[in-house]
Write a protein that binds this DNA or RNA. Structure first.
Lengths: 143, 143
DNA sequence: TATCCTCTTGATACAGCTTATCAATTTCAA
DNA sequence: TTGAAATTGATAAGCTGTATCAAGAGGATA
């Protein structure tokens, strides 16, 4: 659990730097958050209802946004919802999606990743994460 | 303006295929849409208010979604809003998005495109369109 | 070109997700 | 322990996008 401790430390530092406080709720939410790759506020709300039935949805939104500011989480808008990704689980999840049958094929390509870094650097960015989706027709759907 | 004519034809075909009708509003919205790379329903609403003060926001949403189904547009969720991208300008414009300030930098990279094709081919896919977004911090937000 | 069935529109109510508000509570430095 | 400042929980409000529905427009047919 050294990873969890490390993240907790990142949070502590961020809080100290901004005159914020470490509350029971923030600890609880961080612990649960670190166990998962990505969550929505709603899913955490239900998960944590067992541990603390009075934990409010607004607190979860506030706290997840706080994690984003602290660099522990990253928000991504997926459809109508916001997904909060655990930065430490940065995996390569690229997708080929068939517009005919909906099949999703996962792939990774180091060369593409390298070129992405190159583009980012050229524009003064440091990449935290990315999203690459290729839409098309699979072999079967073309016939 | 042969491109505009071509897109209009794509729309006409889609409408015919699905027993839909070509209305004054759909022509108006398509014409305005083709002049831009990406729009939101709200921006089009204001742009078109001059040409047709009675054009409803719901009609714009419906029509932009129709364009997506016809393959002329592609919807993407940026922040809390939905952006509708002009597909004919697509393939040339991927996005670098700053998670700090929201700045969006467009870029194109033929080599990445080529590698995407390669991945698709290897998996038996033929790409119709794609989405590539790099999320990170811009130079200013890192300080 | 007149007819008629169907699709579309505009206005607005509604729904889903997220943020703002505020009194009560908790944190933590002194 | 105390007290100023931050946080919480409950909920109202805000924002984007969709559903509803009566009135209007398209277009195939004759």
């Amino acid at each position: 659990m050294s990873k969890a401790l490390k993240e907790m430390d990142v949070l502590r530092q961020h809080l100290a730097k901004h005159q914020l406080k470490l509350t029971r709720q923030r600890e609880l939410i961080l612990t649960a958050f670190l166990r998962q790759e990505h969550v929505t506020a709603e899913t955490m709300y239900h998960q944590l209802a067992k541990k603390d039935p009075h934990l409010g949805l607004a607190t979860i939104y506030r706290t997840l946004n706080l994690f984003c500011e602290a660099g522990i989480a990253q928000a991504r808008h997926f459809g109508t919802q916001t997904q909060y990704d655990n930065i430490s689980h940065k995996g390569h999840h690229d997708h080929l999606i068939c517009t005919g049958c909906g099949t999703i094929v996962e792939f990774e390509n180091c060369e593409i990743e390298r070129l992405q870094e190159e583009v980012a650097t050229r524009n003064g960015f440091v990449i935290q994460t990315h999203r690459l989706e290729l839409y098309g027709l699979c072999a079967r759907c073309r016939h």
